[in-house]
C-alpha cells in the first residue's frame, strides 16, 4: 500500500495524542513546515494538559481520528510522545485511519500507532516531532525530515553510518520504533508483527536491566526469530540510568549478547529516535539493509 502524496500547499494536522506540550514548543516545527511550503492546522485539543496526558482519552482520540477523516488534511504530525497512545485504542477506528493512507509522523510513544498501521500494511514516518526540534540538530536532521515528507527517501550523506554487528543483507519493510512501546503491544490485538520485516529498535531512559528484559520479551514472543534484519539505534541514557541495587552492563554489550546469536543482519548506533541527531525513517516501504557496509536504502517510494 502507498500513502497519498504530500504536496506544497497541503495541510498537515498537528495532534498531541499522548503527553502535553507547551505552545511555545510548537514554534520551530510550524516555522519549518511553513517555510517548506506546507500549511498546518492545530487540532482543537492539541494544547490540552491533564497530568501526564494531553487531556482525556476521548478528546485526544477525537483529534487524531478527525485529522485522518478530514479531506482537508493531507498528513498528521504528532507534536510530542511521552505516554498515552495505547490508551486510545477503544476510542479509535484504526481501520478507517488506515484507509485514509495519510502519513502519521512521529516516534517514541507514537510507535504504538505505527505498529497498528503496519499490521494493516500502511506505511508511516518515524520522525522527530515538534518537541524534538526545540533543540538545535545537525543540518542533515532537517534535510532528512523534509526529504521524506516529499517522498525523497535518499539518506543524507552526512548522516553517520551505524556499526556492523552481524554482516549480511536483508530486504523487507521496516517496522518498529521505541522498545518499551514495542513490548507494550505484545499479546494485544495490535501486536508488533516482524515477519519478513526489518526491525528497528531504540529506547530512552530505560535502565540497562530493563533493556535486557524488553529484548528478552521480544525474544520470548518470537519477534526476533521471525524478523529479516535488525537496525538498532541508541538506548539513550541506559548506561547512566541503572538502579544501584540491581547493577548494570553497557547497553551495547546487552544488545549484542541478546540479539547477535539470531544471526540476522544487524547494525547498531543507526542515528534515529532519541539520539542527539536523528534520521527520519520511512516505515512500511521495502528497504535494503547492507549490514556489512552500514547502509540502509529504500527500494520503493512512500507515496503513490
Amino acid at each position: 500500500m502507498k500513502l497519498r502524496k504530500l504536496s506544497r500547499g497541503d495541510t498537515i494536522a498537528l495532534v498531541t495524542p499522548a503527553s502535553p506540550i507547551p505552545a511555545e514548543k510548537l514554534e520551530f516545527m510550524t516555522g519549518l513546515l511553513h517555510d517548506a511550503g506546507y500549511r498546518t492546522r492545530l487540532m482543537p485539543h492539541a494544547m490540552d494538559a491533564e497530568q501526564y496526558l494531553a487531556g482525556p482519552d476521548a478528546c485526544r482520540a477525537e483529534d487524531l481520528q478527525a485529522a485522518f477523516d478530514s479531506d482537508e488534511i493531507a498528513a498528521v504530525l504528532c507534536t510530542r510522545g511521552g505516554y498515552g497512545c495505547a490508551r486510545l485504542f477503544p476510542f479509535l477506528n484504526i481501520d478507517r485511519m488506515a484507509r485514509a493512507r495519510k502519513m502519521l509522523i512521529g516516534f517514541s510513544d507514537v510507535t504504538t500507532l505505527h505498529v497498528a498501521l503496519a499490521r494493516r500494511g500502511v506505511p508511516a514516518v518515524h520522525a522527530p516531532m515538534a518537541i524534538t526540534l526545540n533543540y538545535p540538530r545537525e543540518p542533515w536532521v532537517y534535510e532528512s525530515f523534509l526529504r521524506v515528507l516529499s517522498d525523497d527517501l535518499r539518506v543524507p550523506d552526512e548522516a553517520p553510518k551505524p556499526e556492523t554487528v552481524v554482516p549480511g543483507i536483508a530486504e523487507g519493510p521496516i517496522v518498529g520504533g521505541c522498545l518499551s512501546l514495542l513490548t507494550d503491544t505484545l499479546g494485544t490485538p495490535e501486536a508488533l508483527d516482524t515477519t519478513g520485516r526489518i526491525l528497528i529498535i531504540e529506547a530512552v531512559d530505560d535502565p540497562s536491566h530493563r533493556v535486557d528484559a524488553m529484548l528478552t520479551h521480544l525474544i520470548n514472543a518470537g519477534a526476533i526469530e521471525s524478523c529479516a534484519g535488525l537496525i538498532i539505534g541508541e538506548m539513550t541514557r541506559a548506561d547512566e540510568k541503572h538502579f544501584e541495587d540491581i547493577g548494570m552492563r553497557p547497553w551495547r554489550e546487552i544488545v549484542t549478547e541478546r540479539l547477535a546469536p539470531f544471526g540476522k543482519p544487524m547494525v547498531i548506533d543507526y542515528p534515529f529516535g532519541h539520539a542527539k541527531n536523528m534520521l527520519t525513517v520511512p516505515l512500511g516501504v521495502r528497504a535494503r539493509l547492507d549490514a556489512g557496509r552500514g547502509d540502509v536504502t529504500y527500494l520503493e517510494g512512500l507515496c503513490e
Binding site: S19, Q51, Y52, G82, Y83, A86, R87, S180, T183, D184, L186, G187, T188, A191, A213, M214, T216, H217, N220, A221, F243
Partner: peptide
Amino acid sequence: DSLGTPHAFDGSGKIVLIEDVGEEDYRVDG
C-alpha cells in the same frame, strides 16, 4: 513482560494479584 509469550499471564477465572516497585506513575498506567 510475559504477554504474547508461551508463558503469558492469563487472568481469566482468577483472583489477580498486582503490585510493583520503583515504577513512575505513567509506567504503572502503561
